[in-house]
Design a protein around this nucleic acid. Sequence first.
DNA 1: TACTATCATGAGTGGAGGCTCACTTTGTCA
DNA 2: TGACAAAGTGAGCCTCCACTCATGATAGTA
Lengths: 175, 175
Amino acid sequence: MSSKPLRADARRNRAKILDAAGEVFAERGVAASTEEVAARAGVAIGTVFRHFPTKQDLLGAILKDLLADLTSAGDTDLFAFFTRVVTAAAEKKVVVELLAREGVAVGVEGPVAALGDTVDRLLAAAREAGAVRADVRLDEVLALLTATAQGALWGGWPADLRERVLARVFAGLVA
Amino acid sequence: MSSKPLRADARRNRAKILDAAGEVFAERGVAASTEEVAARAGVAIGTVFRHFPTKQDLLGAILKDLLADLTSAGDTDLFAFFTRVVTAAAEKKVVVELLAREGVAVGVEGPVAALGDTVDRLLAAAREAGAVRADVRLDEVLALLTATAQGALWGGWPADLRERVLARVFAGLVA
DNA sequence: TACTATCATGAGTGGAGGCTCACTTTGTCA
DNA sequence: TGACAAAGTGAGCCTCCACTCATGATAGTA
């Protein structure tokens, strides 16, 4: 997979670029310019394009990281996981935008699939425990998850509204 | 309010532009170019800008029309109205985009407020009839409405998934 | 230290899209 | 029908942004 180990300065810059991109895209969404990412990382624009040949590649890389963070934690409760994803999404424009629109197209099927797997696993456990109705399907839960995440982000819901909305959504799923 | 009556050709072109803009923005979203609207309307770009000095003005005008359509119908059932809005939104990118992001900023507070009023009225009636829990608040319903509409649009939900998701949302609201 | 492959730099390119304006066309009305 | 104000036209301006490349710097190695 990886060819040669990167030179020390290259490795440093790559990390700085990923950090900066994470911040910039979280704040401004995918519309943020590569120029701004370079500026925040303290490198020239050419350096960004050396490491990530297109903007899509850069977006794909940070989405992969963010989804890995979300999925890695050893969640055991469907509702807690749901809440965590929606809360995180509300603060990261880019996650919602990419998942909603271009997610499948930036070459991160792996991480996206992992998120689906996590929900699948938690849903099965919740069903087993009688915490959700028996007829709740995976696609419904994923649909509700992305919808709620989008609403929270674009609607700029305050924390208390977010909690109340989540409570309503959960109420529709419990037995 | 209105200064002078428009010349016949101006009135015709204005209507053609609004029709074309409605189609183009519904299909391609707010990112569609004014050039494309002009082409579909069969007028020069300058004519579009004569009638609507900025793209925002054009978007505001069609959003106003679309919201008026949604709100005007004499709905009496909250859930039926909810379903109608989500279904309509799923086919009109521009409605969701504008409501979610720039809606309040394009000078259409009137129509947006009217939509809120409609939901308010229907919610009160539903509460009266015991069709929803007594503690359901207006902001929650509006949040769920926009979230579901966004999910339906960006998620590209098929009709049956949309129905099942709506059923779950409604289940969370009923007594 | 000297050498070189790797990396960084940033002005520049090309294309897209909002918007303008000098000029032409046309509806309206006396 | 003639005259004029209103409306239409579209080449072009300007800004923004993804992306390139010739040139200069530097880390790793002998």
